[in-house]
């Protein structure tokens, strides 16, 4: 049980490493996706410990899991994808301006133009 949680933490930290340690902005966006995925998996995994059946009624004697985390995570997933789309659009724009995905090169280039 602890192992799963530890693995999710590792996934989160891998994603965070992608954001902080990588220079390529596309990889930074990958990292953002990963930490979002880690947060969602964590919420769903822990929420599902309270029962054994999907939260859809209809049959008798169901022992359902907590549906609240699931509803919240639907929102979180969608917001995450929206942010990804926007970040990618900005990244493409920056690439067009500077000819590179490398954050330092972009900064140098943009700095010189201003």
């Amino acid at each position: 049980m602890k192992l799963e949680l530890l693995l999710i933490l590792i996934l989160f930290l891998v994603g965070f490493w992608g954001i902080v340690g990588k220079n390529n902005i596309i990889k930074k966006i990958f990292g953002l996706n990963m930490i979002n995925a880690a947060a969602v998996i964590l919420f769903i995994l822990e929420g599902s410990r309270s029962g054994a059946d999907a939260p859809i009624l209809g049959k008798e004697g169901l022992h359902i899991v907590d549906p609240v985390p699931q509803a919240l995570m639907l929102t979180a997933i969608v917001i995450g994808v929206c942010i990804t789309a926007l970040a990618l659009a900005l990244a493409v724009h920056l690439y067009r301006v500077s000819g590179s995905f490398d954050i330092d090169r972009i900064r140098d280039k943009v700095h010189n133009e201003n």
Partner: peptide, 26 residues
């Protein structure tokens, strides 16, 4: 984990839409 709604959304949005956007960007 008994979360079919989230599974469908993740498959459609995470694997579908965002992959399309990534490929478009690249």
């Amino acid at each position: 984990l008994q979360a079919p709604d989230v599974a469908i959304t993740e498959a459609a949005v995470g694997a579908g839409v965002s992959t399309v956007i990534y490929v478009w960007a690249l």
